[in-house]
Amino acid sequence: MTSNIVEIDNLSFGYNGRLLHKGINMVFPKGKVVAIMGGSGSGKTTLLRLIGGQIKPTKGEVRVDGHVVHEQTRDGIYQLRRTMGMLFQHGALFTDLSVFDNVAFPMRELTDLPESMIRDLVLLKLNAVGLRGAHKFMPTELSGGMARRVALARAVALDPNIIMYDEPFAGLDPISMGVICGLIRSLNDALGATSIIVSHDVKETFLIADYVYFVANGEVTAEGTPEDLMQSTLPFVHQFVHGEKDGPVPFHYAAPDYRAQLLG
C-alpha cells in the first residue's frame, strides 16, 4: 500500500475524439489538501468525475485506495464512493428536503443507524459548519454561503476519507469565502481525510493547499507547493497567479487580423 490515496496515471479523456486530457499524472497523498487549478474549461471538474467513477477514461487509469476505478462493477464503484464526499459547485442541495434532512440523507440511505443517532450526528455535523440553528430551513431559504456550508456538512456526513470540492469559493462574498476556507482545512485535519480542491481562486486556494497542480491544455503544466508556485517563472503560472490579463493565455480569442476584418 502506498501512502497516496488517489493516483491518476497517464490519464486521457475526451468526447467525440477531442481530447480534454492528454496523459495526466497526479498523486494525492493521505491527509493532505491538494488543489487542482486551471482556467475555466480546462477539465478540472471532469477530473473529479473521473475520480468518482461517473465517467470512464479514454486511456490510463485512476486508482482510489489501490482500486482501479473504471474496472470496478457498479457495486464496486458505489463501495468506493461511500468513502468519498463531494461538494458541488452550487451545493446541489436537495431542494425538496430541509437542511436537516439533507445532511441526514446519506446516513438514512446508506446506513442502518437508528433515527435518534442520526439526529445527534446531523446536529454534530451542522454544528461543525456553524448552522445548527438553521436545521429547520429549506434550501431556498438559505444564502449562497450558508447553502455551501450545509452541502459541506452533507459531504462529510459519513466521515469520508476523500473530500472533493468543486469550485468551493465560486460566487461567495469575502466573509463566506473565509469561512469555507477555514472549514475545508479544519475538517480535513479533524477527519484525517484527503481533500481535493478544484478551483481558480488563487488567494484562498494557496492559503490552505499543501500542494497544487496547474492544468492547462489537457496537461499538468506546473506543480508544487504554493510557495514554490508564487515564485515560479513559468509564464503561464506567473500570469495565472498574478492575474495578468495578457500572457501565454492571450486576451484575444483566436481571430483573423482585426484590420483586415474591419476593412474587409
Binding site: 461517473q54 464512493r81 461511500r82 468519498m84 452550487h90 446541489a92 446519506p106 440511505e109 446508506l110
Partner: peptide, 16 residues
C-alpha cells in the same frame, strides 16, 4: 431541475 442543479449527480456521488 434536479438534474440541472446537479442534485442527481450529487446523489450518485453519495453512492445512492
Amino acid at each position: 431541475l434536479m438534474k440541472t442543479t446537479e442534485q442527481l449527480s450529487a446523489m450518485e456521488m453519495m453512492a445512492v
